[in-house]
Computed example of a mutant assay.
Amino acid sequence: MKTSNASSRYDPGLLSDEELAERAHNELFHVTRAYEELMRRYQRTLFNVCTRYLGNERDADDVCQEIMLKVLYGLKNFEGKSKFKTWLYSITYNECTTQYRKERRKRRLLDALDLEPQEEASEEISPKIEEKGGLDRWLAHVNPIDREILVLRFVAELEFQEIADIMHMGLSATKMRFKRALDRLREKFAEEAET
C-alpha cells in the first residue's frame, strides 16, 4: 500500500514526454496529471502550428480541441514506438489536413452557388496574413504540403525525419520539398523587394 501511494505522487514537470505518456497510458481516465502536463507543454505550439496551417485562429482553436481529445483517448493505444512529439504532430497534421479539406469543399460549394466566397475568404484569411507579416506572409505563397513542412520545421521545430514520418514521405523527398519551397519563397520575395 505504501509503495503504490508513493508511486502515485510525482512531479509531472520533472518527467520527459515519454515518461508522461507512459504514466498517462496507465493512469487515464482516473488520474489526468500526466496528460494535463503533456498538453500544457505543447498547447501554445499546437495552436501556432494549426493557425499557420489553417490561416485563422477560429479554425485553429477548434482543431486544437479535437487534437486534445484525440490525444486523451489515443494515449491508451500509444505504444511509444516513436517519440510522443512525433505522434502528437502526426495527429495534428491529420486534423489540420481534414479541416483544410472541409474548408476547401465549403468554398467550392459557395463558388457553385455563386455566393461570393472571395468576399468571405478575403475578410477572414487574407487580412490576418497581411497584418501579421513574417512567416504567415510567406506561407500564403506555398501549397498546403510545402506549408505544412515549413510549419513543422520552423514552428514545431521538428527534425526532417520526424516531419517525413508525420507526412508519410521519404526523408530525401521531405528535404527536397523543404529546400524547393524555401528557394521559391526567396525568389518571390527578392522580386518583391526589387519592385
Rank of each mutant, 00 (worst) to 15 (best):
C64Y: 02
L15G: 05
Y93C: 09
E130I: 15
L115V: 11
D17G: 00
E191H: 03
E79R: 14
D114V: 13
P117F: 02
E192Q: 02
S90E: 10
K85S: 15
S8N: 00
V142C: 02
V71D: 00
H168W: 13
V71Y: 03
F84K: 05
L110K: 13
R44L: 14
R137P: 10
E123K: 11
A21H: 07
D146R: 09
I67V: 02
L185V: 00
S90T: 13
R147H: 03
L171M: 08
E148D: 14
L54Q: 02
E79S: 14
E148K: 10
L110P: 08
L72Q: 13
S82W: 09
Q43W: 09
W138P: 03
I67A: 09
S126G: 15
L20I: 03
L46V: 00
K2D: 05
L113W: 09
E192C: 02
L113C: 02
K179H: 12
H30D: 15
W87K: 04
L152D: 03
R108H: 14
D146T: 07
A193D: 13
T97F: 04
I166V: 05
N56F: 06
G55C: 07
C96E: 04
K70A: 11
E191D: 11
I145W: 08
E57H: 03
E191R: 03
R107V: 13
E131Q: 12
L113M: 09
E119F: 14
V155S: 09
R137Q: 08
I91Q: 05
R23W: 03
S172C: 11
